[in-house]
Design a binder for these strands. Structure first.
Lengths: 156, 156
DNA sequence: CTCTATTATAAGAGTGAGTCTCATTATCAT
DNA sequence: ATGATAATGAGACTCACTCTTATAATAGAG
């Protein structure tokens, strides 16, 4: 899975992001509507996994049902990704295909999630080791998630 | 965090498990009731994270509300652990304090979760690297989770 | 052994994140 | 333009999980 290792887009690179999303949407015969543009842009601006209330908070004109529908659609074409934190709300962010492979710092107190990158050397050692484990268990690996739980700077 | 690295209890070691749980419960001034015994034993027998339906399936006499209540109580005293997979149901298993630190293979198709152990050497490299990342972000780490997503032997 | 205070249980009502429905609106192809 | 298709959004609905409350079990005092 090469795309996982692309560097993360800098946040100012919205134009390129929109181009990539446009391509993916049109390949799947979907339209890049204003709603979807704003949703993608909101996720890009946050630059970390956020909940539905976060999204509505950033762009109150978006309707809850539309956001959920579009997040699912965008997830299916590899633009968006839903992650299950312990929180009552699911978290959503741009897919690793677009922003690069990364991991999360999850604050047990406030629930905020922050993106971090692991040293490339350890990342590849890890992948090797996981591949071994998978083959031993006759398991076809697709991707891994590595989260660090604790307390963020603001909460300690 | 020494306890994370204790070896996993073999499944036949129910007696010792019950002793440990008894201690933890009495230290917190709780009783080790029949309900709680059976819940702990069910989790031990599965030996992997399971959902509430799984638990009821294994022991239909247990009441849903009691299971949830006891799982929360047991989690608070470090006997049990709730994990958020993408699934509609939460998963529960015995805490790492009791069964040792481990990771998960998560099947995207059937949702089954399987425990696996990472090579100790890589595990400690990983912890070092995570500690570095945490200190750089002024984050107080408590524990990490590492899951491999893919398709299990039965589903591919 | 009682008795009493405390803890645990379980049925079912309640909550709320997320999904589905459907009538309306926007967009594309011709 | 116009008909066909795709997208939207308000609100009804679902269902995992939590809360309430009346009952049952247990521990400890006397």
């Amino acid at each position: 899975m090469k795309p996982n290792h692309l560097p993360k887009n800098p946040p100012h690179d919205l134009k390129q992001l929109h181009e990539q999303v446009t391509t993916k949407l049109s390949q799947a015969n979907y339209r890049y509507t204003d709603n979807r543009r704003r949703l993608v842009e909101t996720l890009a601006r946050y630059g970390r996994p956020v909940t539905l209330p976060d999204i509505i908070n950033a762009d109150p004109a978006l309707a809850q049902s539309s956001i959920y529908r579009n997040l699912e659609l965008l997830e299916n074409i590899g633009v968006t990704c839903r992650i299950a934190i312990g929180s009552e709300h699911a978290h959503f962010e741009l897919a690793e295909q677009l922003v690069g492979h990364h991991h999360h710092l999850i604050c047990k107190a406030c629930g905020t999630v922050q993106d971090v990158h692991l040293d490339l050397q350890i990342e590849s050692l890890l992948e090797e080791s996981l591949a071994q484990i998978a083959s031993r268990a006759n398991f076809s690996p697709l991707h891994h998630t590595l989260d660090l739980h604790g307390r963020c700077a603001d909460c300690k």
